[in-house]
Computed example of a mutant assay.
Amino acid sequence: MIPAADAPPSGAGVSSGTNWDELLAAACRGEGLSSAYQPIVDTARGTVVGYEALARFSGFSEKNPEVWFAAARSHGMAAELEAAALRTALAARSTLPPNCFLTVNVSPELLPTASIRRIWREEGNLGGLVVELTEQTPIDSYVELEPDLNQLRAAGALIAVDDAGAGYAGLRHLLALRPSLIKIDRELVQDVDRDEAKRALISMFGSFAGRVDAWILAEGVERVEELDALVALGVPLVQGYCVGRPAPPWAGIDLDLAHRLASKRPVARKTVIRDVLETAPTASTAALAAEAFAENPALQSMVLLGEHLRPVAVLDADTAEFGLVSPGMRVNLDTPLNEALARSMTRTKASRFEPLLVTDNAGRYAGVARLERMITALTDATEADGPRRSSGGTPAD
């Protein structure tokens, strides 16, 4: 019922002596159960266009929703608990801001149950509601779900598939359900700025979405570098701690972040270094870089800066520790990609595939350009179209 990345830590978990029958009965009555709402942001406009409702068990010692829903399944109360969580989430629906949608999570196997069907009847018109089908358990046949899915669509709801790229069903899930919204699994989003394979896979999902008239949403965005990479790919919707944490209804996003997104250039074919620019941490001496590597083992590279913010070299942990500074190759922001690649190949074998140091017109450090990104930009003729929905807009439009 709730993405793992948004679930609070459960600590040592629930002891074997927990009286789950009593606790679940209370939660199913709505006691101690509440909802938080995480913003979903349109990357083109820098505005909140939707919210995901997330179950919270704040009135109990065990806070982790995953533990609760697992306990409900094992005690035969899954439908009742999901119905209670849905009812709690939908209680604030009447105050939803204009031009925003609300997404709620439902286990597919519970759609035909009386408890879940009663929720939809109580709501009546489901316009502006997105029903996410989670992949917590395998689905043997989608045929049995069709009557309920058709009724949801007829009432105005849209169908979403959660955690695309992971779970039991994978692409089969997408092909069978033909959702209006495809949520990209957070495992694909994590470090997407550093992984070309993940970028390629997200682009593939985007191409599929465009063909079936759907949107894609990247969830679990935690770093601004990941956000920038997704924007560069043309992903239209994002969600995660980087843009907004779960909160009471209806939280906005940071104004600086909104301006950052709204001021981004439209996605276009990548032809110059500026189009593949990435940030990298800097240090004024190799010794300071070595200290940074020691403090953060996950750090892969740093840029050594000289006078007047001019980049000198790309350092890794070894070169920083031993002070082995070899001047790197510098290119201007507006250097054509094919020209930069040709120059890169003139370097020695030992440094041929190091990132290029990118400078502005005054020679100051602007970022780095990795050869993988440059090659991908030149060879992927379809990347310019990006994974935006073919007809534009968002589910709120």
Rank of each mutant, 00 (worst) to 15 (best):
F353E: 13
T348E: 15
M374V: 04
R364Q: 07
E372M: 08
N361K: 05
P336T: 06
A342M: 13
V368D: 07
T359Y: 06
G363N: 07
P336M: 01
V358S: 01
P355K: 04
E372C: 02
M345Y: 09
P355M: 11
G367I: 09
D360M: 03
P355L: 09
R373W: 07
N361M: 08
T346L: 13
A340P: 01
P355I: 05
T359H: 00
D360P: 05
A342S: 14
P355Q: 12
L357K: 00
R373N: 09
R347F: 01
T359I: 15
R364E: 10
D360V: 06
A366K: 04
M345D: 08
A350P: 05
Y365I: 09
E354S: 13
G363P: 10
R373D: 13
N361F: 04
S351G: 08
R347C: 01
L356I: 06
M374S: 03
Y365F: 13
T346K: 14
S344G: 12
N361Y: 10
S344P: 03
P355E: 08
L356P: 04
D360F: 08
F353A: 14
N338C: 12
E354N: 15
P336V: 00
V368S: 02
S351R: 14
A342W: 09
G367A: 14
L357D: 01
M345I: 12
T346R: 15
T346P: 02
S344L: 11
R373T: 00
N338T: 08
T348C: 05
T346Q: 14
V368W: 12
K349D: 15
A342N: 12
M374N: 10
T335E: 10
R364L: 00
E372V: 03
E354W: 07
E372R: 15
L341V: 02
T335I: 10
V368K: 10
E372H: 10
K349M: 15
S344R: 14
D360A: 01
L337T: 02
R364S: 11
A362R: 14
A342E: 12
R373M: 06
A340H: 01
A340D: 11
L341D: 00
N361W: 02
G363S: 06
A362Y: 08
F353H: 10
N338E: 12
V358G: 02
P355G: 05
R373K: 09
A366M: 08
L356E: 13
A369T: 12
E339A: 09
L341E: 02
Y365V: 14
A340E: 05
L356N: 11
V368N: 02
L337E: 09
R347H: 05
N361H: 08
L341W: 01
L337N: 11
T346D: 10
